[in-house]
Nucleic acid binder design. Structure first.
Length: 193
DNA sequence: AGGAAGATCTACT
DNA sequence: GTAGATCTTCCTA
């Protein structure tokens, strides 16, 4: 399966967020491969987006958002690591938050990492999926455009058709007027319907 | 030192 | 579905 190239991420964050649906997030550990289909995302912009981590301008912790697209931006909220992929046209600022996955490979390892047998709760939320895939700050700034690395995103092979829904972003204090959350209609692993 | 933060878990109506 | 406690780092003072 083809790894998504950097050019995929060098576009408007909302476009990237929309097109990441159905792609496969692959996490390689020493003895296991974990993967899941991306079923829910949100787009974030830069200084003009009050919900964005980049809203306050360039700081140490949000630096990845200002740098090269196709790399991770990971931070902690309420005790959970949240995984973003930096996405923006060259010279701009933005990222896409991965909010939910449908588990594919390594489900037993994910259950162990999450401490639950509940399949529905394994990766159906931004903090849940990072725990299931053992993603922490250690992977901040990691380039996901290289195949065979510890964290990559690949094409979904035979793409089943699915309907995309949009809504406002979840949990943000001040949202923009446009809908910037994207999810696969009817998928049971979407965090909220 | 203190508080906020893009969430989660549990326990209910 | 909503309500409240708790979660752990980073930011500001």
């Amino acid at each position: 399966m083809e790894t998504l190239p950097r050019s995929f991420y060098e576009r408007d964050p909302a476009t990237v967020a929309r097109e990441l649906l159905g792609k496969i997030l692959v996490r390689r550990l020493t003895n296991h491969v974990l993967s899941g289909k991306i079923v829910e995302t949100e787009a974030y912009y830069g200084e003009n987006d009050p919900a964005s981590k980049a809203y306050m301008g360039r700081k140490t912790f949000n630096e990845p958002m200002f740098r090269e697209a196709g790399k991770t931006f990971i931070y902690m909220v309420h005790g959970n690591w949240l995984l973003n992929i930096v996405a923006h046209p060259k010279g701009e600022v933005g990222a896409v938050l991965i909010r939910a996955l449908e588990p594919l490979q390594g489900i037993e390892v994910m259950k162990k990492n999450r401490g639950t047998e509940n399949l529905k709760a394994l990766t159906s939320g931004p903090g849940r999926l990072t725990k299931a895939l053992a993603i922490t700050k250690d992977l901040n700034g990691f380039d996901v455009t290289h195949s065979h690395s510890d964290l990559t995103i690949v094409e979904g092979g035979l793409m089943e058709s699915f309907e995309v829904c949009v809504s406002h972003r979840i949990g943000v204090k001040a949202d923009l007027p446009q809908n910037l959350r994207f999810y696969v209609k009817g998928n049971p692993f979407v965090s909220r319907h």
